[in-house]
């Protein structure tokens, strides 16, 4: 398969995921926030995982985060991802952990603890992904 036009692996589109991916496509990522206890969550679910309240609302995230860890894939598993490429685990400022990729410049040594900012990457097949760049 030609990796230039390889299809971006589909996001899970369960009952709770669709609003999140629609907000990403509009380049304004929303996550669920609990009206009861204020906890944010990702991935989306039927209610608040902290207090079980069903009163969760979709709110835009601020876009800031901190790198928890990073890896470099040297093996290709997916057509849209020829190796090498990076994957990062980010604790976003709202609390949840996201898995994503670091775009643009990468730190020369340890990536852990680096501040990052949310950005929206358009993949060759038109899919939009929430990714991160090093914070200015």
């Amino acid at each position: 398969m030609n990796t230039d036009t390889a299809q971006t692996p589909s996001p899970v589109l369960g009952l709770y995921d669709r609003p999140m991916w629609e907000s990403i496509r509009k380049r304004g990522m929303h996550l669920q926030c609990c009206q009861g206890c204020g906890a944010w969550q990702y991935p989306p679910g039927p209610g608040c995982t902290a207090c079980l309240s069903e009163n969760v609302v979709w709110r835009p995230v601020g876009g800031g985060g901190t790198i928890l860890s990073w890896v470099i894939f040297h093996r290709q598993y997916l057509a849209a991802y020829p190796a090498p490429y990076n994957v990062i685990a980010v604790r976003i400022d709202e609390g949840p952990v996201m898995i994503s990729n670091l775009e643009g410049d990468t730190p020369s040594g340890n990536w852990i603890g680096q501040r990052v900012a949310l950005t929206y990457a358009e993949m060759p097949d038109g899919a939009v992904l929430p990714r991160f760049t090093l914070a200015a």
Binding site: P9, S10, A127
Partner: peptide, 16 residues
């Protein structure tokens, strides 16, 4: 859940 970002395989999680 994380396939859109190329994050797959249990080994990758242990690498993190």
């Amino acid at each position: 859940v994380w396939d859109p970002f190329g994050f797959t395989s249990p080994g990758a999680a242990h690498a993190l």
